[in-house]
């Protein structure tokens, strides 16, 4: 046995500890802060978000960390609530998009050739429409702008990209020998999906889902900015930006603060996803 036992990767299993990637830590902290802020607003906010508590368009101060808006409402309070809305929309839209997208993608990967071609063409056509446009269409068709229609619209609009990615990833896994081996050993299709396909496409999919989360949070801001998202008094970041637009020269911080909040959330989620992938993939562990 010494011919095979002496090979080099042997000891690797013992030596590599799960080193936690830096991106996982940084991303986790950023997303954690947003999550904490969002959760906090369920129980407590610094001020009543709808009450006029300070001077109009005040700059940042100890009493009002992010200043006040043109009606004298505390901006920091509204940004905290905005974090909750962004996370709700992001996770809701990703959940809907993933449920539709992964299901369709897996079905397409398993379908017969003709059906697969139909699926693939349908995904491509859907992707050709800008996500925001599709979301606006869906919101317009539902006639009422609410947080829920926004989530649904963004989720459906994003599902085509997830479906296409899932289809390609699943097809690649399905062409591997271990799938044939599993079939030879008598595995049924559903068990192959659960045991082999999903775990193997998961690392790539999770990163894409995180990207989708960021895009969904931004899409919600865009919809709100256009007045198609959560209606007032929901303090969505997009609505804050839109309201600050008219006074951006006199009180720039009203636009800067929600902007920073949105950007940090998106970056944080992306870092978290990249870190998760590096952490979860056994073949990449300890290689950095």
């Amino acid at each position: 046995m010494n011919g095979t036992a002496g090979s080099m990767p042997q000891t690797e299993g013992k030596m590599t500890r799960r080193t936690i990637p830096l991106s996982l830590i940084v991303g986790g902290v950023i997303v954690g802060l947003h999550l904490l802020a969002g959760l906090l607003t369920l129980f407590w906010t610094p001020y009543d978000p709808t009450a006029m508590v300070g001077g109009r368009l005040a700059g940042p101060s100890l009493a009002h960390w992010a200043g006040t808006d043109r009606l004298g409402r505390d901006l920091f309070t509204q940004i905290l609530i905005g974090a909750r809305i962004a996370i709700e929309v992001g996770s809701g839209a990703v959940a809907i998009g993933a449920a539709i997208g992964v299901t369709l993608g897996i079905l397409a990967a398993f379908a017969t050739r003709t059906l697969d071609d139909v699926f693939a063409a349908a995904f491509d056509i859907l992707i050709a429409f800008p996500t925001l446009l599709v979301a606006m269409l869906i919101v317009a068709a539902s006639q009422t702008a609410s947080l829920f229609t926004a989530v649904l619209a963004i989720g459906i609009a994003g599902s085509a990209i997830i479906a296409r990615l899932t289809r390609i990833l699943a097809k690649r896994v399905l062409s591997m020998d271990y799938i044939v081996a599993a079939r030879v050993a008598g595995s049924s299709w559903p068990s192959i999906v659960v045991v082999h396909v999903l775990p193997n496409i998961w690392p790539t999919l999770i990163v894409n889902l995180a990207l989708q989360f960021g895009l969904a949070a931004m899409a919600e801001s865009s919809l709100s900015y256009l007045g198609l998202g959560a209606p007032p008094p929901n303090a969505s970041w997009g609505r804050l930006l839109q309201e600050a637009q008219g006074t951006v020269y006199t009180a720039p911080f009203g636009a800067i603060a929600p902007g920073i909040a949105l950007v940090t959330l998106v970056i944080g989620v992306n870092l978290l996803a990249d870190g998760l992938r590096a952490f979860a993939d056994p073949t990449r562990r300890g290689r950095r």
Binding site: V180, V195, P199, N200, D281, T283
Partner: peptide, 14 residues
């Protein structure tokens, strides 16, 4: 069946 290529015959993530 035993296959030719033992690397691809095993699921890399399991």
């Amino acid at each position: 069946t035993i296959f030719q290529e033992p690397l691809t015959a095993l699921d890399p993530l399991m």
